[in-house]
């Protein structure tokens, strides 16, 4: 349970890991945009190749990355069903037929694309969290959001709150486990099949949990005060984010991938006729 809460950072040293968090964040955001430009199987082929290369460079085992797809299993199934039901495209070639159900070639084609898009939308951010610690992420976000400080949004406090939250989650999970065990040892029923009974059993967990989080927060505030905390504004940082030679390389590689994707979509180099490979596209 703790593992989930702490994010899924995979500790190893690789080029991807040591790339600056800000660069990785920017690339991840742009990546999500890019995925929406991909409308062909050849496009997803390009994505897949680039993705595999990234995974390979990051030294994160591929199966670990793919396991993250488990969370979208239901969503994927639902999406598949919906696209099948409401498919409005060309209904020419029937691939499979049973009773009143007919599945057309175009339908499968469209479904495949939607599913692939979903998969790649999940895989991108997954790689970010696999190769970047929560602390680096917070630092990176803080830096990227810096302009907002100009219009009076307290970015530093926000970042501090975020990192404190990340820090407190495992403690709260621990506490929850403890309370559940304490209630169980007094015959509380958490495993009932009756959903109302189960919901009711949550109350004696939530109340002490909330009470204890307030106590924790209070103690933590005292400890922070004792260590000269007077607000996030005038704090300096020990760790400075530094751009290195890896960062421009990462950006250039990503820009190349994006260009290929855009080219496939808009075909802005007409000297290469994409329709010649139309049988895949």
């Amino acid at each position: 349970m703790r593992e989930i809460a702490l994010g899924q950072y995979y500790q190893t040293s690789s080029i991807v890991h040591s790339t600056d968090a800000r660069v990785k964040l920017l690339i991840s955001i742009a990546y999500l945009v890019m995925v929406f430009f991909v409308e062909t199987y050849i496009g997803f082929g390009v994505l897949a190749v680039c993705f595999l290369l990234t995974v390979f460079a990051s030294r994160v085992p591929l199966f670990k990355v793919l396991k993250s797809l488990k969370v979208i299993l239901f969503l994927a199934f639902f999406t598949f069903l919906m696209t099948m039901l409401f498919y409005g495209g060309a209904k020419k070639t029937v691939v499979w037929e049973w009773w009143i159900i007919k599945i057309y070639e175009g339908q499968l084609y469209a479904c495949g694309l939607v599913l692939l898009r979903l998969v790649f939308l999940v895989l991108g951010p997954t790689m970010l969290t696999f190769t970047t610690t929560p602390v680096e992420l917070t630092d990176g976000l803080e830096w990227l959001l810096k302009p907002l400080a100009l219009i009076g949004i307290p970015i530093h406090s926000g970042a501090l709150v975020m990192s404190m939250t990340l820090r407190i989650i495992p403690n709260l999970i621990d506490e929850t486990d403890r309370i559940i065990n304490a209630q169980k040892s007094r015959c509380a029923d958490f495993d009932s099949r009756n959903i109302f009974k189960r919901a009711k059993a949550m109350i004696p967990i939530l109340v002490p949990l909330i009470a204890s989080s307030f106590r924790k927060a209070d103690e933590l505030a005292d400890a922070m005060d004792s260590r000269c905390f007077v607000g996030a504004k005038n704090r300096t940082r020990m760790r400075k984010l530094r751009f290195t030679w890896r960062d421009p390389i990462a950006l250039i590689l990503f820009a190349a991938e994006f260009t290929v994707i855009l080219w496939l979509k808009f075909n802005f180099f007409p000297f290469v006729d994409l329709s010649t490979v139309g049988w895949i596209v």
Partner: peptide, 8 residues
């Protein structure tokens, strides 16, 4: 546990 502020 109630006086640690960071994850590292």
């Amino acid at each position: 546990d109630n006086q640690t502020v960071a994850t590292i």
